[in-house]
């Protein structure tokens, strides 16, 4: 039972993280490895708001989303916009440069030690299906569900959402619709970064945060992307929850030492059997 809850909690964070990663890759075809760093900055922003200014955890998370959304836009302008149309490998290297920069800047500014975001719900306990769970963990799952539903509604029902989907299929159509590709790209990056910030804030409230926390979720996000198919939000949900559960159960029944290896072993097996990903439409073929 406890494993199920653990799996769902970390799965929810993975889902939020991977959704942001997948919309940028799926719609804009950009492997945004900076995502782990916006995640880290989101966690730090929320931390400083709570610890420094005494803002309530939920409000701090929302403010962090907004701030990191702006950072996401800046990252796009600096690291990806000048390279539009370049091969994936080039984009990936540019992303790695930004990743290194932000990670090391954070480490210089904020120091290399672990912190935890305070939330009023951490110490509250509820009993849930026969187990005791901290309210904070339930809150994380609940907010993740709400956010993902909101995102789905936004993409499916609103005009902007439709433009985003159209852009994924054919950028020229979007231009014909009278929407500026530049602005839409910025918007998608903002959305994606905001999602990573929530994930970071949640993780920082349940576990710890430090300047190097971005790499691990990034690696996991990559696995989820391959599992769920690049660009598919549903795939990110299934993949994220699936990975959270698999990890939780292997940690319980097998070993916790090889947690990352389990994820990557799955990825390698899938890619070796089907070199273009589980639901892949081909990916990089040029």
């Amino acid at each position: 039972m406890q494993e199920l809850i653990n799996g769902l909690v970390s799965g929810s964070i993975y889902v939020l993280f991977a959704t942001g990663l997948t919309i940028v890759l799926g719609i804009l075809d950009i492997p945004n490895f900076v995502h782990g760093e916006t995640f880290m900055i989101g966690a730090f922003t929320a931390f400083f708001l709570v610890a420094g200014l005494g803002v309530h955890f939920i409000l701090a998370t929302i403010i962090a989303m907004l701030i990191v959304a702006v950072i996401g836009v800046v990252v796009e302008k600096i690291s990806f916009k000048p390279l539009r149309g370049a091969p994936h490998v080039t984009l990936l290297i540019s992303a790695i440069a930004m990743m290194l920069f932000l990670e090391n800047l954070a480490s210089l500014l904020w120091g290399n030690y672990n912190r935890t975001i305070d939330s009023p719900y951490t110490k509250q306990v509820v009993s849930f299906l026969g187990s005791t769970v901290s309210s904070q963990r339930l809150l994380v799952v609940l907010m993740a569900v709400l956010l993902i539903i909101a995102l789905q509604l936004f993409i499916k029902k609103t005009k902007l959402g439709m433009a985003i989907r159209a852009m994924g299929q054919n950028p020229e159509v979007t231009q014909l619709m009278g929407v500026s590709i530049d602005r839409l790209t910025s918007f998608i990056f903002a959305l994606s970064a905001a999602l990573s910030a929530v994930a970071g804030s949640f993780l920082g409230s349940l576990f710890t945060l430090n300047p190097h926390m971005g790499l691990e979720p990034l690696l996991k996000g990559v696995v989820i992307l391959v599992l769920g198919g690049m660009g598919s939000i549903v795939g990110a949900i299934v993949g994220g929850l699936g990975l959270g559960l698999v990890e939780s159960y292997t940690a319980q029944y097998l070993t916790s030492a090889f947690k990352n290896s389990v994820a990557f072993l799955i990825l390698i097996i899938i890619l070796v059997i089907k070199p273009t990903g589980l639901f892949g439409q081909g990916g990089d073929q040029h």
């Binding site: 492997p31 994936h88 490998v89 990936l92 690696l219 990559v222 696995v223 391959v226 070993t255 030492a257 090889f258 990352n260 290896s261 990557f264 072993l265 990825l267 390698i268 890619l271 070796v272 070199p275 273009t276 990903g277 892949g280 990916g283 990089d284 073929q285 040029h286």
Partner: peptide, 28 residues
């Protein structure tokens, strides 16, 4: 042999995974 069936961004990801697995083996 198996890994080189993938290409482009997938190859980058598989090799990234191999690196992570090897490093966990060294660690554990």
């Amino acid at each position: 042999y198996p890994v080189l069936r993938t290409r482009g961004i997938y190859f980058a990801m598989v090799t990234l995974g191999l690196g992570v697995i090897l490093s966990e083996i060294f660690n554990n």
